[in-house]
Design a protein around this nucleic acid. Structure first.
Lengths: 336, 336
DNA sequence: GCTCTTGGCTAAATCGCTTTAGTTAGGTAA
DNA sequence: TTACCTAACTAAAGCGATTTAGCCAAGAGC
């Protein structure tokens, strides 16, 4: 088993001290008055033998890992995958690596992930908090950890976060539907107390009530299988024959909804208007194309990484809370 | 700044040695004859003060990080996102964490990622190799690193890998199209020398030639923007008016293809049969639904993690090369 | 009374790096 | 000649864990 080379091996081969090698490798040769000749010799050897520094040792010594822990709800959900991808790019450009994991919006899993991140000494955290995770976040903050929440926040904790104006967005979307002449508009959302879902429902409710329309709400159980969700939606549609439009509160409900509508052989637009939260390839390309309330994922990821890196730099605590506006993209499914 | 507690702090508080604390925390209390009473006291304190072990130090000492580096082409591509998700789950159950990154199928980026993984001392690597990465993989292997490739392999290197029978799959898909009566079948693929794309093209060619049909091939430049890809496909279809079916060699070409076809106002199935490599929500739900050659992602991820963990356990080198069969899923788009 | 066990615990080396506080040799200034 | 610089380099402590080798006291066996 060929042992992997350490800085000490390099020093030994050149008959110099470890210190010198370290200075040279860290670009401090001049500052520390190492002669250019020595620097050149070291760099050449390092390159020739393919020496790679051990970041574990480095981080242990310096207390910095240059790693950001990112917990998303589900990396196979295109919304989160895209945000993750953008955050990764952004972080990379600024010298940070992202360690990302899916929480499945499960409290226990999230707790475990936070523990793993702590053990690995990540420099900062970006988290889509699952319900019931308040204590763990507070504990992080108490330990001076740098945390930014996203997609949703925890009302009882004063942390930094980046979210979307869920209520305003939903209200805007609903207003559009109503202006198009839809009257019996239903919402399909999740049974959830989390802020993002609550606010989407509030936006729907507010718009409907302002126009004196009757509410028609379907709440789907969290973590239900796709098949069940489809069945639930079919059931909802069948039992509310007067429905003329549906607002889906999140992308996978929208996807399941399309499947349900297809199975029921209902024609979108002429029989039923459709609008969904979150954009998706499917919504863009579906026939008819589906109107959506798209989250500004570039802006979100940029804000997330900026805020977190700011926190890492500053000594004193500060809290930044950003609310971005989702964008209403009108397509065929809401055209009358 | 509240300092994070170390094992030494725990020992000091109880007036015992670091060694004892370490033994207890690692479940070696009995084996090392630590009295149950002491063990209990330590565990209680650890729990009360919320001590979390420093994995950096642990890994530095033991030489094991329990981290697997995973390089996929693009985490925002549903195929890779799903595989990543499954690998993560599998690895988790077996005590490993996944560190994943997107290579964008770019050689330089991949090299950098491999370097990062080496620096971070990952225990093993799962890589979708970009073109021209042979030297770097060989270098890894020379350093006794444990590596499994997937999605494609490097013919010049004898490594473990998990791939799909691209040629057989394509051949099967083409045979289906031909049996359905399609005669002027085109393929839209990527300009790429990588094995996966080559084999898909070979499968197409073989089937067509066996039936005496004329080839009609469109190769799209790698990393082209979605808009350009759509334009290229529109151009391809317009210039080959006799085409009666198209086989898309990978998911995002298929997605772009649907958009192109939609823009050209061509009716799928009656005017043009469509079949794509890789499954996708969009293909399942599109109207008409699109037939696909789906990769067995559960099986792939299981094999990947199993092979890698086997490698981690065994002393002697061994090479495992697995080829799985993709599954032809027939939908409306190829029904005549 | 003496040796041998064994139970219960610990000192110190080590992993690979950074960083502080030097050392040494040769040159200048007075 | 002596004191002081400076350029060029280095010894050793420390980050937080694991692990080897060993200490000490009390009881067992003869």
């Amino acid at each position: 088993m060929k042992k992997v080379l350490s800085i000490a091996d390099i020093a030994r081969k050149l008959n110099i001290s470890i210190t010198s090698v370290s200075f040279i490798l860290n670009g401090k040769a001049e500052e520390k008055r190492i002669s250019p000749e020595l620097a050149k010799r070291v760099l050449k050897l390092v390159n020739d033998v393919g020496y790679v520094p051990n970041q574990l040792a480095k981080s242990l010594r310096t207390g910095k890992t240059n790693i950001i822990g990112l917990i998303v709800e589900d990396i196979s959900n295109p919304f989160f995958a895209n945000v993750a991808r953008l955050i990764e790019e952004n972080a990379n450009d600024r010298g940070y690596k992202i360690f990302y994991c899916s929480s499945e919006n499960n409290t226990i899993k999230t707790q475990e992930l936070i523990k793993v991140f702590r053990e690995r000494q990540v420099d900062g955290y970006i988290i889509t908090p699952a319900a019931g995770i308040e204590k763990d976040i507070v504990s992080l903050l108490n330990n001076q950890a740098k945390v930014v929440l996203f997609d949703r926040y925890l009302p009882s904790i004063n942390t930094s976060y980046v979210i979307v104006d869920n209520m305003g967005g939903s209200y805007k979307a609903m207003t559009h539907l109503i202006q198009q002449g839809f009257k019996n508009i239903g919402i399909v959302t999740l049974k959830s107390d989390q802020t993002q879902m609550q606010k989407r429902l509030e936006g729907y409710t507010l718009a409907m009530e302002e126009h004196g329309l009757k509410l028609c709400i379907k709440k789907i159980k969290f973590h239900d299988s796709t098949e069940n969700i489809i069945d639930e939606i079919k059931d909802f549609i069948s039992k509310n024959i007067k429905l003329d439009a549906i607002f889906f509160a999140t992308n996978y409900l929208g996807v399941a909804g399309l499947e349900a509508i297809k199975q029921l052989n209902i024609s979108i637009t002429s029989d039923l208007g459709v609008l969904s939260f979150d954009d998706h390839d499917l919504f863009r390309l579906y026939s008819p194309s589906i109107s959506v309330l798209a989250q500004p994922i570039e802006e979100m990821s940029e804000n997330l990484i900026n805020i977190l890196l700011d926190h890492l730099d500053e000594e004193k605590e500060s809290v930044k809370q950003i609310m971005l506006s989702p964008k209403l993209i009108l397509r065929e499914s809401t055209q009358r």
